[in-house]
Write a protein that binds this DNA or RNA. Structure first.
Lengths: 148, 148
DNA sequence: TATTGTTATACTCTATAACTATA
DNA sequence: TATAGTTATAGAGTATAACAATA
């Protein structure tokens, strides 16, 4: 245990992969704890993805958000139940379902963006412009890692 | 739905906070799916933190990894049960417990580091040196955000 | 046969509340 | 009173397996 010593650090012993892995996991837990709004992280991300892409199928959403189809079924079911997403038949493939955001969904997305990100936005504003720039450059790299 | 169009992007509509939040959550899910070894993300991080700091109490571990004390109790109980961590009485405060890594814990940590990070290490090696440098600079910033 | 989506079910992780022991 | 740690319990999120419908 540390007695009056500085905050413990995990990083520095592992390589970049371990440091990044642990940092991502910990920040993810921290963000989850913060909560924000009435949508979970995956629910919010799914709604945002559908809105951003105009329309997506459940399978595309599952692949995009890195969850399995049955998990996304639950997320979508919730969003449809809340009248935030709408189901429509696929124009050419009757197995598929086309999801679009409802007006209510788009409105909620707009309203909750600030609220949901309040904690993180505040923390980011306390960083130096240089640090924010680093994170801005890191985001697309993180996206690419998720996609791999 | 996208028909033969490029991969959908979430980023670009929200600000840095939203983009970062969603990217972190998604990569966290992706990393969890990858698995790697027989320790969960929190179990591995806890063991690494104790090893790195020589000794920590459960409360310090909980604060450090951003989980509540009862959650860390379970993590620690598992690690002690697996003979990876050892409990010892605190020298001056009999309420507290001092955790140290066992030889088995340190050995496992060394052995599993490469295995556990194999997927991410491979992905990182496919990035440009510049991209890796960005992530290297981002890690301590992410740590700082977690700590806030 | 392969794929989309769903249902049924179970597991993992984390949380809150309440308790004990110690400070 | 306050804090460290635990126990009991519950919730959220995600997974696998099996199924129906369609390609």
């Amino acid at each position: 245990m540390r007695m009056n010593s500085p905050a413990p650090q995990v990083t520095g012993r592992g390589g970049l992969a371990e440091d990044l892995h642990i940092s991502i996991a910990r920040l993810s837990r921290r963000l989850r704890r913060q909560g924000g709004g009435d949508l979970s992280a995956t629910q919010f991300a799914a709604l945002a993805a559908v809105d951003c892409n105009e329309a997506m199928t459940p399978r595309e959403l599952a692949d995009h958000e890195k969850v399995r189809p049955p998990s996304m079924t639950r997320v979508v079911a919730f969003l449809v139940d809340q009248d935030l997403l709408r189901r429509a038949p696929h124009p050419t493939d009757r197995r598929q379902v086309v999801l679009t955001a409802t007006d209510k969904g788009r409105t909620l997305l707009t309203e909750r963006r600030a609220l949901r990100q309040a904690w993180l936005s505040q923390r980011l504003s306390e960083l130096t412009p240089d640090a924010r720039a680093v994170l801005g450059r890191a985001v697309p790299i993180l996206e690419r890692l998720s996609r791999a």
